[in-house]
Design a protein around this nucleic acid. Sequence first.
DNA 1: GATTACATGTAAGTTGTTACATGATTAA
DNA 2: TTAATCATGTAACAACTTACATGTAATC
Lengths: 196, 196
Amino acid sequence: MAQTQKTRYAILGALTVFPMSGYDIKKWIKDTTGSFWAESSGRVYPMLSEMLREKFVTCNLTQSVGKRCKKTYTITAKGKAALKTWLTKPPQPTVSRDELRLKLFYGKNLTKAQYLKHTLEQQKNMQQRLKYYQKIQAHIKTAHNDISDSFYWLLTIKGAIYHARAELAWCKDIHKIMASKDLASLKKSHKSISFT
Amino acid sequence: MAQTQKTRYAILGALTVFPMSGYDIKKWIKDTTGSFWAESSGRVYPMLSEMLREKFVTCNLTQSVGKRCKKTYTITAKGKAALKTWLTKPPQPTVSRDELRLKLFYGKNLTKAQYLKHTLEQQKNMQQRLKYYQKIQAHIKTAHNDISDSFYWLLTIKGAIYHARAELAWCKDIHKIMASKDLASLKKSHKSISFT
DNA sequence: GATTACATGTAAGTTGTTACATGATTAA
DNA sequence: TTAATCATGTAACAACTTACATGTAATC
């Protein structure tokens, strides 16, 4: 019964930073909250129209460089109120589908090489992410003087960094365990794997 | 174009452990891979019928305790082959929607108390999870002698434990930062927040 | 006597993605 | 000149959830 429609709040949140067009919003969401939130244009544009009808946002046309018109949306007091109401509600734990973990869980059905291919790829991805996060972090610290937002962004990035580090530590552990033992000898020693 | 249908593989994976009924499968998925994978009965039962037609599984009726009949599904060679093909493919990074993170990212729009309510709740949840994982971990180590599976399960749990620990460390950091500074003084000192 | 667990399934609705259509501008 | 970015939007489809229907058996 309870309609979530979280796309709505992801958009409203973005508009508390500054007014944006649909295109901007999609890009913003990808660039800032991309590691834990995604929206497609097929949702953003219809949702903006809906929220315009509901007076959660206002729209004014701005001419961008050429003749193309750009619709810049601004959040209203009503929109802000709706956002705040949602923000204060306890977040419902969405069980994400982590494909990597599912594949590794049923790793019995993979060869050692296939298994390691997945974890090495994950390790590489997490290393890249970590670098990306640290770059963003430095960027926010230096370029942003609008404290009210950037304080919270830094805390969020910190969480992302911790997450990436945990994934890296996990991958390393796996590689250590897989490298030191061949699968045939695991029967004897698997119980001694350290789980500190 | 590329149809994912991951429910299919979550089920097939479960059936590589032992034959199960639809009810068992749903319970199994929840109990073992529940922290990173979810399936609803509205998907499990139709998918089992579909896979029966495709000869990925076979079905035989077993009388459970009373008169209720139970359909026990067994994975076929064809099903195993399909699973292995999928397992070896690089997992596509599904961007989950982490509601907590979105809410904290736009934390500017929350009061300090509201913000802390979310992070304290997350801390509590992660502590509970951690205990749960450690219980399961101990259980697998002692009760399971079928090494081929349990080795991979232990590695997966290790990842879950690392993840929970990272979340806990993050929450603690947030509480430290939020406690030591009142929001009014943040303007001066936010750049000195340690991001080690 | 009530609730929970077992057990299978369907139907309606929601939510979301992908691909497409359209076209300007800008950089390699 | 080819591709990428800017810019808005729709239509078709895919995927998933929730609530319901139905009934047994065990436990509290």
